[in-house]
Design a protein around this nucleic acid. Structure first.
Lengths: 336, 336
DNA sequence: CTGAAAGCGCTTACAG
DNA sequence: CTGAAAGCGCTTACAG
């Protein structure tokens, strides 16, 4: 009733375990007769190699752990991070890795330790990062890469988008279409991407002679739809009196949250106010009006993280740091 | 440089591996002195048990495979299925399981075989299902549960929503608010949930004397936003001439796709047309106007699937089939 | 071309 | 309370 092992195959074929192993792996010689017999039995008995036993001897599990750290739900199904995970899954399958997905509200030792005990070959760290956990993992000697982490860490491969360039694109698009008074909702500034997006935006504005005061920056504690809605509703009077003709939020969730509020106040978008987000989550194109935004190549981020990690795992020489991904402006109905 | 093993701990503590093992597991006796020494070394050397070796002897990996079968992207980040995955992840962590997530465009032996080779303790099958793969898994003797599968299978634990009841709720809500001419977009009828949602809807209509012809059913080949948009745009003339005052789609993606088109045609929602979806994905409440829909308890579906599977794995006696989850109507801005 | 042996890192009776 | 031995299912030199 139990699943057959190499031992059982060997017994029935009248050969040794070694021979069966060699035939399965294709390493070493074997006679055609032995091969036929063994392969036939494998087929017949539906033999499936035990990956656990293999991992035991090869010291490689061919498993990768994805650690996704985020404070708010959703986590794995997050419209931005979820897409990265989707890409990771696909690329990993292509390279014959299985993926453990682990989510956590904070970057803790716990999840990382668990993955180490499972003896994954490597780790992909996404979003919130903390130095001590990074050190902990490094200490264990486990290869890892980071994806869109909250901060860069020296000597660590970090796959990111050119967020500062994206911020500039937004400013350029808005100023070129005649906007000067822009209301900005800035996501958590302790996260690299939100920080750089804002920075790129402001730099461009300044360089083009737009007064600092004309861009009213409102800090968002989280990067959620609810927060976007909340901030604009609290600032609604200031918004109206300020003569703003455009709104930029450092991600799509904040932008659509704000847009929802504006639409409920019967503000015409883009006739009265233009809105720009950042990320290009699926949902951005579905909204009415659809959202102008900066497309981040999440697909490439996920795929690249697996390819990079695979190189580290196989200890390929001269692995150079991947270049930052270039985003692009997607103009939709929410701006004019 | 390598990570310490039980053997190294034993050597340094001057005891045998057996003793170390017993101290770690807490099974069997050990002297306080030995315990102090060993525990101290474990702390000092940052010993982490090798889960692979443990799995080898215990014949249990404490890993669960989630197989998510869907034709279209996104898969893991799908607004409906992704939420189930999120719940699975959380509940699994609580019960000390790690989760392999595997996505596939079709239900194939390949992904399932791979998980079997990894010797997962059990499998959670989501969405598209096919009898032969089910048989294949059963044959291997691996416990599994299904979640929102395309079809029921005898004797298999299947966690589902009461979709027929949900369909009835939609019909009831629309007829009570005075609608008689309803345009229906029905997702793939070879999938259990879409089929039952439509069935429940139609049954209620018929029982309440609404003419069959008044509910124009349009079949959707997929259950995507693009398809919803496409169908209503193709039927736009028929829709206008038909005097429809409401639209029901068997999931939120189709509904929002259709809604997007209607809004682009300057149709007032809900003043001229009411729209109802099904699922209550996050995005439904964010849309403008926000979507009236039937909330499926995806969170409970995911959590329950893990709990059920855990019982099967532990061979708990008398595991009874969970009852179907009751959905509820969420009235938002898209209906009146 | 093939088999016996050792070993991957643990756990679990068993004997003392 | 403790240690030696066997074994989980494989792979990999090594000897023949």
């Amino acid at each position: 009733m139990d699943n057959p092992t190499i031992k059982e195959i060997a017994r029935r074929a009248g050969v040794s375990k070694s021979t069966v192993s060699r035939i399965i792996s294709g390493n070493g010689y074997s006679s055609p007769e032995a091969r036929d017999k063994v392969l036939g039995l494998i087929e017949e008995m539906q033999y499936k190699p035990n990956a656990v036993a293999r991992a035991m001897v090869s010291q490689r599990t061919h498993n990768i752990g994805v650690l996704l750290y985020r404070r708010e739900h959703p986590i794995a199904s997050h419209p931005f991070y979820g897409k990265i995970v989707d890409a990771v899954l696909l690329e990993a399958a292509r390279l014959n890795y299985s993926i453990f997905v682990t989510t956590d509200h904070d970057m803790s030792y716990r999840s990382a330790d668990f993955m180490m005990e499972k003896r994954v070959d490597g780790l992909i760290l996404i979003s919130r990062l903390q130095q001590n956990v990074i050190d902990h993992i490094t200490n264990f000697g486990l290869p890892f890469v980071m994806v869109n982490g909250s901060t860069d860490v020296d000597g660590v491969i970090h796959i990111v988008n050119q967020d500062e360039a994206g911020g500039r694109m937004v400013a350029e698009h808005l100023t070129r279409t005649g906007h000067e008074r822009i209301f900005v909702i800035a996501g958590p500034q302790n996260h690299r991407s939100h920080h750089l997006r804002l920075k790129g935006f402001m730099t461009y504005m300044r360089q083009n002679g737009i007064q600092e005061a004309d861009a009213a920056i409102h800090a968002a504690a989280t990067s959620t739809f609810a927060e976007g809605y909340e901030i604009i509703s609290r600032q609604w009077n200031a918004f109206r009196e300020g003569g703003y003709t455009a709104l930029f939020a450092t991600n799509d969730m904040l932008a659509t949250g704000a847009m929802k509020f504006l639409l409920e106040q019967a503000v015409l978008i883009p006739e009265q106010v233009s809105v720009v987000g950042f990320d290009d989550v699926d949902f951005a194109g579905m909204f009415s009006p659809s959202l102008t935004t900066i497309r981040v190549d999440t697909w490439e981020m996920g795929a690249q993280s697996v390819r990079m990690l695979d190189k580290l795992i196989r200890q390929e020489p001269n692995v150079n740091h991947p270049s930052e991904l270039m985003p692009r402006l997607i103009v939709r109905q929410s701006t004019k």
